[in-house]
Amino acid sequence: MKTIVDDIRTRFIVEWEHQQREDLRQIGVRPGTVVPLLGWLKLHSPFVQLTHMSAVDWIEEGELQLTYLLTDPVGMRSLMVCTRIDREEATMESVHALWPQAVTYEQEINEMFGICFPGSPRQGVPFILEGWDDMPPMRRDFDTVEHVHAHHPSRPGREHTDPRAYIGRVFGERGFLHDDD
């Protein structure tokens, strides 16, 4: 694993890296190098399979993170290639020429996060949200509760608890998600 990341470093600029598990390594690169890097990995490394593709909204930093999970099917190892793109002009090069299955991921990310992949087929074609007229729902400034109250009538009599307050009361001040200690 180490040697492949070193190999990558001689060819591409790797901004950061992190060993998540013994068989899972993350590297962060700039958006412009993602597609050349993935193409090189597919041709010259054992990481030939695109297993997953996802996005995270870092609203505080004004960025969206795209993650490509590549797998080495022989060595049972995975490599995560992460990149950050601007949140307002969310555009990314498509990788569907490398892996045809990326079309579906890109279609879904386009629908859920509003990231545009120019050239990828089925961009803007509804994947799950048919007739959606709001902002992409996985962006963190999307107000789910407000949307639900506007669109989905619900049976009266059910009381609403604020999740943040409820989790704080049950699990203490920090909540129960503390994996960084």
Binding site: I128, L129, D134, P137, F142, T144, V145, H147, V148, H151, H152, P153, S154, R155, G157, R158, H160
Partner: peptide
């Protein structure tokens, strides 16, 4: 199907089937 269950505040599921 009765009142939304655990998907009450989900953006894409209906809350009350008998509507």
């Amino acid at each position: 199907t009765i009142n939304g269950g655990m998907y009450w505040d989900s953006y894409n599921t209906i809350n009350q089937l008998d509507l």
